[in-house]
Structure formats: C-alpha cells, structure tokens
Design a protein around this nucleic acid. Sequence first.
DNA 1: AATGAATGAGAGTTCATTCAT
DNA 2: TATGAATGAACTCTCATTCAT
Lengths: 223, 223, 223, 223
Amino acid sequence: MPRQARSRAKRDAILAAAARLFGERGYEATTASDIAAEAGVSIGTLYSYFRDKRQIFLSLYASALDSLSGLDIAGALLSPDPLETIRALLARVLPYDAAHYALQRAWVGLTVRDPDVARCGEQIHRFLYDKLLAAVRQAQARGLARPDLDAEATCWAVLILVDRVWHTELDPATLPAEEFSRRRDALAHMIFHAIFPDPSSRRAASPLMGAHRDGKGQGGRVT
Amino acid sequence: MPRQARSRAKRDAILAAAARLFGERGYEATTASDIAAEAGVSIGTLYSYFRDKRQIFLSLYASALDSLSGLDIAGALLSPDPLETIRALLARVLPYDAAHYALQRAWVGLTVRDPDVARCGEQIHRFLYDKLLAAVRQAQARGLARPDLDAEATCWAVLILVDRVWHTELDPATLPAEEFSRRRDALAHMIFHAIFPDPSSRRAASPLMGAHRDGKGQGGRVT
Amino acid sequence: MPRQARSRAKRDAILAAAARLFGERGYEATTASDIAAEAGVSIGTLYSYFRDKRQIFLSLYASALDSLSGLDIAGALLSPDPLETIRALLARVLPYDAAHYALQRAWVGLTVRDPDVARCGEQIHRFLYDKLLAAVRQAQARGLARPDLDAEATCWAVLILVDRVWHTELDPATLPAEEFSRRRDALAHMIFHAIFPDPSSRRAASPLMGAHRDGKGQGGRVT
Amino acid sequence: MPRQARSRAKRDAILAAAARLFGERGYEATTASDIAAEAGVSIGTLYSYFRDKRQIFLSLYASALDSLSGLDIAGALLSPDPLETIRALLARVLPYDAAHYALQRAWVGLTVRDPDVARCGEQIHRFLYDKLLAAVRQAQARGLARPDLDAEATCWAVLILVDRVWHTELDPATLPAEEFSRRRDALAHMIFHAIFPDPSSRRAASPLMGAHRDGKGQGGRVT
DNA sequence: AATGAATGAGAGTTCATTCAT
DNA sequence: TATGAATGAACTCTCATTCAT
C-alpha cells in the first residue's frame, strides 16, 4: 500500500469515527481520545492529521457542505413545474441518512460556541441565500412568483426552515421512510406556496396545476 | 431594603447575568464563576440560589416558555382574516428582545447534550403541535384550509420553522427593527400560504384579500 | 425561663444533635449546618456557642470521658474476686447505649487527623494506663498477679483492647443485649486471665476461685 | 529504561507517596494534588493510573491484606507449644514497619465514611474470625483449651485486639524495637491465657509449661 | 511517521466560617 | 442575642494538547 494512500485511509478513518461519535454524543461529550480509539489510531496520530479537535469537526462539515454547492436553485424555480423541482432539490439536500442528521445535531451545539464554526455556517448560508434570492427575483421578473412577495425576507425564512431541517430534524433513526418523505413533501409545498401563487388564481385549469397533480400522484393528500 | 426583596434582587441579578453570558458565549463556554462575577456575587452565593449550573439555565428557560402557554392558535386560524391573526400570534411569540434570542442560542447547545433539557423542549413542542394540528383540522373541516393539505406534516414544518426562529434568529442585536418585522411578516405569509389557498382561487376579488391589504398596509410588498 | 437556663438548653440541644449526626455519618460528613438544623438553631447561634466544629466534637467527647475518671481500678484488681470486679468495671465503662458507640466511631476518624483530638485521647489513655499499671503492680506485690507478668506491656494491651471496644465495637444497634453481655464477659475473662494465674495453679480449691464461680453463675460457659 | 518498567515505577512512586501522606495526615487531609506532588508527577498522571483517590487507598490496602491470607491459625493453636506459635503468628502479622502502621491509621478514618472500604474490612475480619473460631473449637475438642471458654465471644475479643493493634498501634516511628517486641509478646500471652488454661492447673509441673519456659527464654518476665 | 504517557489549567461544586442586620 | 445570606478557598476530577521515544 503506497504511503499516500495509507495516509489518506487513516485520515478518513478518523473522520468517520468522529462523525459517528459526534453524532451520538455531541461535540463536547466526545473526547479526542474517544475519536482516536474509535478510529484505531493513537491520539498522537490524530493530532498529526488535525491541528485540533475543532479542525476535525470543520473538515467533517466541509464535506457535508459540498453536496450543497452544486444545487441549481434558479433552474428549479424557473422550471415549468416548480413544485416538482423543489421537491427534487429537497430530496438531494435532505438525504434519508441517519449519519447526516446525527452529525448535524453536533454542529448546532458547536456553532453556538465557536466563532469559526459559526462563520463557516454563515458563509454557506449567505451563499445559498444569494442563489435563492437571485432565483426568486428572476421568477418575479418573469411573472411566475407572487408579485407582492417580500423576496428578501421570504428567502431568509425558506433558508432558515431548510437549514433547520437539514441540521436536526428528519432523523431516519426515529422516523420511518414514509413519514420522512411526507414531511419532505410538506416542506416542498410550503416553499412552493410561499413563492408561487396558487395556479387557479392566475388562470383557471392551469397546466402547471395539472402537471403537479399528475407528476407526483400524492393521492390528493397534498396540493 | 427588606430581606426578601434583596434576595429576590440577587436571584434576578444572577439570572440576568446568566442570560447575558449564556447568550454571548453559549452554555458550555460560560462558567459558573463567570456568572457569579458578572452578577456581582460570589460563587458560594450563586450556588445557594441554584442547585447547579443547569438549574440556572432551566429557570431562565421556564420563564421564556410561559409566554407560549396562552396562545390561541385555533382562534387565529379560524378568524375571518387568518393572515392578520397569524401575524399577531407571531408578534407575541417572537418579541423584539435581544435577551430572548441570546438565551435561546444557548438552549440549542444544551438541548443536544442534556436529556432533561431536551425532554423539556419536546414537551413544549408536542404541546404546540397538538394545538396547531387541531386548529388546522378545524380549518379544513370548515373548508377554509387547502383541502388536500397534509395536515400532520405541514404542522410539523410550521412548528419547526417557528421554533427555529424562536430559538435563534431574528436577533434584535444584529437586526434593525424594520427588518425584524419584515421577516416576521414573511413568516406569517409563509405559514398562511402553506395552510390556506389563495383568496382568488376560491372566489375572485375575495373580501379576505382586501381585508389583508388594508389591515396592515404593507405597501404592496407582500402578498 | 431564665436566660442562663435557655442558653444551657440551647447548648445541650446542639451537642445532642451533633452526637446524633456525628454518630450516623461520621465527623467529616456532618456539616455545621446539618448540626444547626438538627438542633433547631441557626448556624450563627451554633458558632456563638462553639468556636468551631471541632470544639463541638471535643465538648461531646469531654463529657464521655467523665465517666472514666471515677474508676477504681486498683480496688477492682485487689478485690477478693477480681474477675467479678473487672466485669463490673467493664459494665460501667461499656454501656449498652447505641449513641455512645455511634459517637465513638466518629472520634476514631477525627483522632487520626486532628492533633488536638489525638492529644486529648492520649491524655485519657495515659491517665488510665498509669492507674492500671499501679494497680497491677500492687497486685503483683501482693502475690496475686502472675509473678512473671510484663506489667507495662500487658497494661498497654489491655487498654488498647478496652479502648478499641469502647470506641467502636459492641454497638447495641447491631448487637442483641445478650450477645452484648457475652462479649463483655469474654473481655473480662481475657483481662482476668492475662493478669491473674488460674486459681488452681496456686492452690487447689482456692477461695477466690470459689468466689468467682458462685458470684456470677455463668452456667459453666466461661472459666 | 523500558516503558513498562517506567510505568511500574511511576505507579509505585504514587503508591509510596500516598502511603506516606495518608499515614502522616490521614485520608481526608491528604489531597490528590499533594500525592501527585510528593510522587513527582502531575495530577493528570495520577488520575491516569488510578480512577480516583479512593482507588489509590484501596490498592495500598490490598497489598497490606495479602500478608494476612496465608496464616495457619489452626496449626498455631494445636501445636505443642501454642504460646510460641501464637508469638510467631503475631510476628508475621505485626511487622516492625512504620509505613504499615502509618497507612493503617488512615484506614481507620476512611472505614468510618466509605461503605466500600468498610465492607472490605469486614470481609477480612470475618475471614479471620472463621479461621480463628474453627481453630479454637478444635483446641477445645482436643481438651487443650479452657473447657468453659465462650469461644465465639473470645474469638471476637482476640480479633478486635489484634485488628486494633494491626491498624494503629505499635508504630515503630515512636516505639523502639525492644519495646515493640515486648508489647507483641504481651499480646501473645494475653491471647494464650485467654484460650488455654495455665499448665499447672491441669497437671502439676506440666511439660508444656517447661517447654514454654525454655523455648523462648524471656528471662522469666512473662509467663 | 507513529505513539501514548504526561501535562496542568480549569471545570463544577462544597462547606466552615463571618458579619451586617 | 440570634440570624442566615454571603463568602471564597479548597477540593476532586477531566481532557485538549504536547513531546520524548
């Protein structure tokens, strides 16, 4: 095994162990030694890969954020069937993956205490906010969104909601898959209705409405 | 100064100091000695008023929760102008008060680690959820709410949203009053649209729509 | 109620409470506040009666020692029936009284740590040792005691034994009365045999032997 | 120096320091930091070798107890010259070793307060009591012991005596070697006389008596 | 590069004692 | 004289981090 590969594997083992333990016990309650033991390395080794405990967490978080960077929010809102594309977006952003939510719970605790972590969170928040706001503005410009929408404040609210869910709710560990997707759908509807007017309010029997109805076939439970 | 009053004042000083520091630094990063120093008492005194650090926090939180117990959610959703009553409800729930938000940030950190705190949070969540769900069901029964609404999942989403905002956002310390109320309004609209269909989708030129327009006079910025 | 009497009563209440608590929990585990509460006075009052916690204990101990000061050890050893008088002496010294033993247990803990307490214990020890040694020497001089007895060392051993019993054993709380007196008798015999030769070894059918046999009528269980 | 040896040395240094300080000051009055400083290690190190302060003490005590486990009490009492074998037994049990007695003094303080320590002490007491009682019963059955002996109560008294001495007296630090062995001999005689009748009381000019006299040659001081 | 023994600042908490009322 | 709120030094124990091997 080449040296670099072994080094990479060790780093990954540490991160995986950290994700597991942070998720289970929270950031503060997980000691550096715990992580090293769980990863099967010594603390010395752990500290040769990461400057300090916080860096481990930050690294962990960085990779979680990657999944958010490629989102095509504008495309979603401007599509012919925004409800559906919002739903698809949420499905990407909110995976049915216990490890993800466990880790995020730890994040919430840290973010409060650690300025760097908080700043990191704010950056991603800002990044998404800018993207979302631009998309909403385009939708407004094309006459798709509610004309009297307070774009800034609504984008803020949408992000807050998704962010919160991303961080702490929808934990597959306590939520059956069906309930999980019902809630994700409810989120999609909430966001959709916040931004877009009801189809029939613009034009009776709108094709958009039809598309949505057929598209997912929610059995009429959700609009 | 009578003894009881002095005692009360000291207790309040400790709570105030704790709220300040917990808010600024988070629960873990605030030491018992810090609180005592900030309150101008000795740690011995602090520990004669509160069994332990957690109790200080819990006391702080208990008073914050009182404001939530008297909410008339059903009345709000069944009123002739739900948007307006939702707005009023949010105004009660989300005060323009920096101390409140600072404290709530600390709560989030603790909730992750301390089962008692988490349980306490779940209770209030459950309490509000039940109230909200009952209200939404009544609104559906009367044909006011979106007929195909997934009531449970949507109530969950609304609560998550409000809860998150209640806990950590809208901090007056970093938000001018005008921006604060814009965001609160955006929340009200988001909740309103999630539950209720657009007025014109039921009847063109609905009086409800008009009522809203006049009622708050948001200058046409928001639906 | 005259002032002095009330003061005396309060002092006694504190001592009684302290005896109870020291006995139950030991010296260290009993706080000054505990004693004050148990006695129904404030700590302030407690500290106006006693310089510090140790003084409470020392006062308690002093009264326990009073009972030892009037012992006529010489008379006991020189009597015609030493076994019987030793037995009587032990009955005075080792009361069937739970409070006594509880308190003594606390003493043992303190004596180790507190030079003053230890010194106080040594004084009484020395006092009794001198008395006992003088008595044994007289008995030897009269040809009553074992002629080749190491008086000093044996007196030391006897005192150690009685002292230990006085302090911690024979607790009526865990020992039925009958067992209690059996053990006390065994102590008496042990001391008797240590000092005096067996009657028949000096002279067959000695009157002393007879006196002892008849005197207590132990049913032949003990010599 | 190999790692394991260094680790062992450090552990021993901590135990030695603890024995020294516990002996000098007692358990409570010795702080964990004191021990660490005396041993020349940091408290962190101390706590990596021992879970808590009590464990240090218990480890110390455990090794002291080992010396008691191999005692052949029955053999001693049934030997042709019991006085001599009792003397030998005591010599094993009561070493001329200051550290031992210093440590035992601390034990007495702890036993009052710590149920685990007390239980541990009771076990060893029970163990020795059972051994001793069986031995005495055998001696009685063979007609060697005093026929009318209260075996249980006397065994209790003997153990109390030895236990007390084992724990706190005979401290070589304050006792010259000669005085030390005189006292130990006095103990042996006391125990011997408590259990066995005087030789001549069974038969004049008994060979046992002679054996004893010659065996040790105490200069006729003690029978 | 890898180890893990060693570090020690700092946490929460207790309680003997004081002193203003 | 009696009170008990207030004090703060001192305790035990933890854990992020270092560094000699």
